[in-house]
Design a binder for these strands. Structure first.
Lengths: 228, 228
DNA sequence: TCGCCCATTATGTATAGACATAATAACGCA
DNA sequence: TGCGTTATTATGTCTATACATAATGGGCGA
């Protein structure tokens, strides 16, 4: 048996075929290395990947066992909205509806971990696909942490894209939910008030300070997809 | 400098600090290994992780460069509903509302890749958290591929959990969307018709055949969260 | 008997060296 | 000059070996 991918495939086959049942300890790396005729490091690489995928549980000394209730991990690819639109074969455009300095309200302050009323740039943007509304974005931006200091013109490059290019590689957390569109939101998206919208809320941080809070609304028909 | 995590951290720091700008080729593994005083394999491990996270792009011969438009990867943990409810500190229960053999309708047949009218087990389940409706599940189950052949009693262990334990480790795809609750769905969840619901649809496969199609509805207030 | 400490053990990581592979860049030929 | 072939090169992977680390289970002592 050849490389680590073959080892992974064979181990996966044994798990699926229930040759190794959930909860049971499987042979150690050393034993598998001998059986498969590879080095232990190769087995380690294969088992590590399966553990990261949630199919195996590994603990030092205790050994490796097949997960009893495997928590499957699906990976979502978070790309910029322009790419998402263009991937559908449509022409992207965006329009800045609002752009002003404003003190953050309580809900935003709590999420960003800053005091209420801190001055941030408030941005409201409509993203268009083929001229039709695609997503409505509301954003608070901590201009203090921007590289260069000056605030760029977001009507040229959207804040979404500009941030990915210029303050990227930050950490953050994301939440998805379904909500009813408010009157203003519905008007922007060209739907009716009360219609269900797919909401993405994201807070982004550097090591020290919060960068931005975004609330993104997608109208009916939007689907977020992934594979497992 | 010590292990691969330290190397990863330092490389990440240089990317964030823009010492290495997006699009630029960074030094080769050999050079970094010398600079950090570690083996090339250690640098390789660190760079591979960053590439998997979408921050670096690596190509043989061409070298490693900082991603221009990094596609961030967020991992969603797909756990069984009982675990999800219990993680909130609430008591889980479920009720099977419907359970009968039935030919699959067109929409389901298309998603599962089977002919219209194929006989499958139709299941309708309500998941409860602390006695209150938590999620409404509609499922078509390809009983032909179940291990053992016999159909278990899903009123004891929910189909959701039973499948994870018994036909787990399958592949599939998942889609999330926001929809308006139909009258029947709203009644089951104890909300009003037209209220926005968070919809999760999942098709699961073994290597050969489709196993199940699930449509899961979460009422208002539900949030799907993850970190980046 | 109970509880603490430590030997044991499987995984986790690091290393140097080697070869494989993909893709570019350079070369040579027409 | 244009195009196809080849040499070069950075990443990808494998191996053997060594040591680190966490956690278990047994042994020891109170």
């Amino acid at each position: 048996m050849g490389g680590w991918e073959e080892v992974r495939a064979e181990v996966l086959r044994r798990i699926r075929a229930r040759e190794w049942v959930p909860g049971a300890v499987i042979p150690g790396e050393e034993a598998l290395a001998v059986e498969f005729g590879v080095a232990r490091a190769t087995v380690n690489r294969a088992l590590r990947e399966l553990a990261e995928a949630g199919l195996l549980e590994r603990r030092r000394k205790a050994g490796t066992r097949v997960a009893l209730l495997p928590v499957r991990k699906a990976t979502l690819e978070i790309s910029i909205i322009r790419q998402e639109v263009e991937a559908r074969g449509e022409v992207y455009a965006h329009r800045v509806l609002e752009s002003r300095m404003e003190g953050v309200p309580l809900a935003v302050a709590l999420r960003m971990g800053v005091p209420v009323g801190v001055g941030m740039l408030f941005l409201e943007t409509l993203h268009l696909a083929g001229g039709r509304p695609f997503a409505h974005e509301v954003r608070w931006l901590n201009v203090g942490v921007l590289p260069g200091g000056a605030v760029p013109d977001f009507s040229v490059t959207s804040a979404n894209e500009w941030l990915v290019q210029n303050v990227a590689y930050a950490t953050g957390d994301i939440a998805f939910s379904a909500e009813a569109a408010s009157g203003a939101e519905a008007a922007a998206l060209g739907i009716s008030a009360g219609d269900p919208v797919f909401v993405t809320e994201r807070v982004t941080w550097t090591a020290e300070a919060p960068i931005t809070f975004v609330r993104l609304l997608h109208g009916p028909g939007y689907r977020l997809r992934t594979m497992v």
